[in-house]
């Protein structure tokens, strides 16, 4: 009798527990539903077009493989066509932007993380305000700065360093400047988060054990900040791959990135080929993401530098 009652009670607890767990899943439902309807479905439908518009098959991917002419890159001969070259330029700009933001962002994040919290929060405004400003506005600002009659040229001519306006706008350099400026916060913020989590006593311990400041940095701080480096690089690189406004407004005729190519196809109503290019971009992004996760572990990237 007593055992039967106890078994009944256990069953009731179990049911209650299942119900509670299901209730938590319910909290996810609105967001999941929204994403499926307004994001998942359109993306799937769009990607499907690369295989069935105008006809079923791999016809949309033909241009990527067709009519290759070999070109030399770093002494290696590679078969290239215009489309592959755009993908190459895209990767090159993304890599360059990532390296530049890392080199500029690391010291900033280090300085912010070493300050007392109150001062760091104050200075963080200088990182966040540009972050909150529209990309379009900031890109136009760079056009005003770098143009033939722009401030930079006027200052250089005023100082008599040059006698004719230099071509600053519509160059690869302008693309880098604009993209690095826009993407820098995406590097600084994850770096800062990880560096804040590093126990300062570890640095003291290293000094106490006989390490000079640069040895402390190299053998303790730098390795512990690597998860932040990985997170920042991943974020900046993947965002840079898909950049559109900044390279199209600041770049020259030869600085075409894959998103600009996609836009051209859409304007010409070549939906199938545009989808194929978008699929290529998606696959490249996923591969890079998986490589990062494989090498560093997703937990180390998003979980911060704690033990």
């Amino acid at each position: 009798m007593a055992t039967a009652a106890r078994a009944e009670q256990a069953r009731r607890f179990e049911r209650l527990e299942r119900l509670t767990q299901r209730r938590y899943l319910l909290l996810l439902a609105p967001a999941v539903l929204f994403l499926v309807i307004f994001y998942g479905y359109p993306v799937a439908a769009m990607l499907l077009r690369s295989f069935n518009d105008p006809a079923w098959g791999f016809g949309n991917f033909k241009p990527l493989t067709a009519a290759r002419t070999p070109i030399e890159i770093l002494g290696v001969s590679l078969p290239m066509n215009a489309y592959l070259r755009v993908i190459g330029i895209t990767l090159q700009i993304a890599v360059g932007t990532t390296i530049a933001t890392l080199l500029l962002g690391y010291p900033v994040a280090y300085a912010l993380a070493s300050m007392p919290m109150s001062r760091a929060n104050l200075l963080m405004i200088f990182v966040l305000v540009p972050f909150w400003t529209s990309i379009l506005v900031r890109t136009y600002a760079w056009m005003a700065l770098l143009g033939t009659d722009g401030i930079v040229n006027e200052v250089l001519m005023g100082l008599r360093l040059i006698d004719q306006p230099a071509t600053l706008l519509n160059t690869r350099g302008a693309v880098y400047v604009g993209m690095v400026h826009i993407l820098l916060p995406f590097m600084i913020l994850p770096l800062y988060a990880v560096m804040r989590g590093i126990d300062r006593n570890l640095m003291r311990a290293a000094e106490n054990l006989g390490a000079r400041p640069w040895q402390v940095f190299r053998s303790v701080f730098l390795p512990l900040s690597l998860p932040g480096v990985a997170a920042g690089c991943l974020l900046v690189f993947i965002l840079a791959l898909g950049f559109y406004i900044t390279p199209s407004l600041l770049g020259g005729q030869r600085d075409i990135m894959i998103s600009m190519l996609i836009q051209q196809q859409v304007v010409q109503l070549k939906w199938g080929f545009a989808s194929a290019l978008a699929l290529v971009l998606l696959v490249i992004s996923l591969i890079i993401y998986l490589v990062f996760v494989r090498v560093l572990g997703v937990q180390r990237i998003f979980g911060g530098g704690r033990r």
């Binding site: 006593n201 311990a205 000094e207 106490n208 006989g210 512990l224 033990r307």
Partner: peptide, 20 residues
């Protein structure tokens, strides 16, 4: 004298072992 030249051992409150 800077700490790295003092040659004094120290055990920290939270041990401060290098996690990596």
């Amino acid at each position: 004298v800077p700490p790295w030249r003092r040659n004094i051992g120290m055990v920290f409150q939270n041990y401060a072992l290098f996690p990596h």
